[in-house]
Design a protein around this nucleic acid. Structure first.
Lengths: 112, 112
DNA sequence: TGTTTATATCGCAAATATACGATGGTTTGT
DNA sequence: ACAAACCATCGTATATTTGCGATATAAACA
């Protein structure tokens, strides 16, 4: 794109879009699911679960981290990732709220 | 990417990711909000509301349509877009369900 | 110390997404 | 029939995403 126009939108729309973007790849959805399932927030196991190379998984993890949805810290040789529940839940609620606010406006009869 | 690996993931993860991708741009979030607000699902008005050129808006509308989140039909000179409530709500529920299933696994104490 | 192991990061290639001007097709209104 | 209005689509430029091999880093271990 010639210019990035994201700044021209409402803050809340941008925030919602960023959350959605973090979830916009099946690998990242799968990573979140895996992190939640394996109570122990192990790391490299994710690579085994996904059909992707280690470098690629590492990149997706980085994106989830940048989005604030997970945290990661190095533990010796391995590094441990966890869902950042506080932020994750807050964004989830924001999205649910968005859905609810639209639903509230839903007309009785569809116009088209 | 050399190859598109999306087919290598679970169907449900792909579906969720596709929904999220449709919401992953503030313009598309704003379009959905606008469509819900203006009960009359007018069209070109969207262009006036957004800080984007008509061609760009048309493209975003097309993407939302491809994702099944809105419907659109030509009405004389203008074309009328509406939220495809059935599919939209179904995807919203799917996402909420995803969130709920993760939350259910949330440990009492964070490990990292 | 040298080796293995677990990860992150770099650099590259290919695919997609974003944005817009220009253009073309339709439908009204004159 | 002509002009104006509305919108979709094409073509194009640029930016971002996706994916991976190769390499770097750092801890654990022989």
């Amino acid at each position: 794109m010639a210019v990035n126009k994201k700044h021209a939108f409402a803050e809340s729309d941008v925030a919602l879009a960023e959350f959605a973007k973090a979830l916009s790849h099946p690998a990242r959805v799968a990573i979140l699911r895996t992190l939640a399932e394996k109570k122990v927030c192990i790391c490299g196991e994710i690579v085994e679960v996904l059909p992707l190379a280690q470098a690629t998984v590492s990149q997706h993890l980085k994106e989830l981290k940048n989005a604030g949805l997970i945290t990661g810290e190095i533990e010796g040789v391995r590094s441990c990732y966890c869902i950042h529940w506080e932020h994750f839940e807050s964004m989830l609620e924001r999205l649910e709220q968005f859905g609810a606010s639209l639903r509230a406006l839903k007309p009785n009869s569809d116009c088209c």
